[in-house]
């Protein structure tokens, strides 16, 4: 049996277990798991944090609408995983990008499936993030003290939209090329800053070789990190504040508690 250093003092002997009797396989396995977790917890004190994150009180009336945020995050994680695998085959150069996508779709085992997951997952994430935003808005969950989390959420919506814009160009087919040309021109139609913003996005006055690699770098290096960090901040504040009850739930006043607090 795997024997890890045990907690000083050790776990108390299980009552009713005669010392002479050989331990069963099940007992040994659970003993090893407890010992391993104990070793980890003693060195990281993570059990308190884990309890704080996982075992929270939720208000009465919590319903399926409260799963939209987690769903959005899961959609993001699915995008991360499928994106990593697509990046193994994708070539962000103007002469090879389309050919590499054709290779992924036609030759690579399950390539079209993974590409499809990434493509439909992107749509799903955009839909879910807006549903989540709508839930937050209509349940009034953006109000004090959760305003900062609303702001972080809005930034996440914007980053998701930029993610969608930059990802749309990457297949480098007619649809993605012209749709992105239109998208960049929408940015460029802002007064004063617009023309310079357009040049920045295209890396020059015309779509060229640098445009594609620039969009690719923004799509798979810059934004995933930013979104991941902001999701962490978003979750921290959700856990810190707790979730809100739906607006139709009346506050229940505990008279005993009120007396004891007075």
């Amino acid at each position: 049996m795997l024997k890890l250093p045990s907690v000083p003092g050790g776990a108390p002997p299980r009552p009713g277990t005669p010392a002479a009797e050989p331990a069963s396989l099940k007992d040994n396995a659970s003993e090893a798991a407890i010992s391993a977790l104990g070793w980890l917890d003693e060195r990281t004190a993570i059990s308190g944090t884990a309890r704080w994150v996982m075992f929270r009180k939720v208000p009465k009336g919590t319903n399926w609408f409260y799963t939209l945020g987690t769903s959005t995050m899961m959609a993001f994680l699915s995008q991360v995983v499928t994106g990593v695998f697509l990046a193994m085959y994708y070539d962000p150069s103007p002469n090879n990008a389309y050919e590499s996508m054709r290779h992924i779709n036609n030759d690579v085992f399950l390539g079209q499936f993974v590409h499809g997951m990434h493509r439909w997952g992107a749509t799903t994430m955009v839909v879910l993030i807006f549903l989540h935003m709508g839930r937050t808005f209509f349940f009034g969950a953006y109000k004090y003290p959760r305003e900062l989390n609303w702001v972080i959420g809005v930034i996440l919506v914007l980053l998701t939209m930029i993610m969608a814009l930059t990802g749309y160009l990457l297949p480098w087919d007619q649809r993605s090329y012209w749709a992105t040309a239109v998208g960049v021109n929408v940015f460029a139609s802002a007064p004063i800053a617009g023309p310079y913003l357009g040049d920045f996005l295209r890396a020059g006055p015309e779509f060229g070789a640098t445009t594609l690699s620039r969009f690719y770098a923004i799509h798979m290096l810059l934004l995933p990190g930013l979104i991941g960090g902001l999701i962490a901040a978003h979750l921290y504040l959700v856990i810190k504040h707790g979730t809100t009850a739906p607006p139709w739930i009346e506050a229940e006043i505990d008279e005993d508690l009120r007396k004891s607090e007075a």
């Binding site: 103007p94 090329y177 015309e206 779509f207 060229g208 070789a209």
Partner: peptide, 9 residues
């Protein structure tokens, strides 16, 4: 109109 970008240019 753009050199070095293949068909896209």
């Amino acid at each position: 109109v753009v050199a070095g970008a293949g068909e896209t240019g």
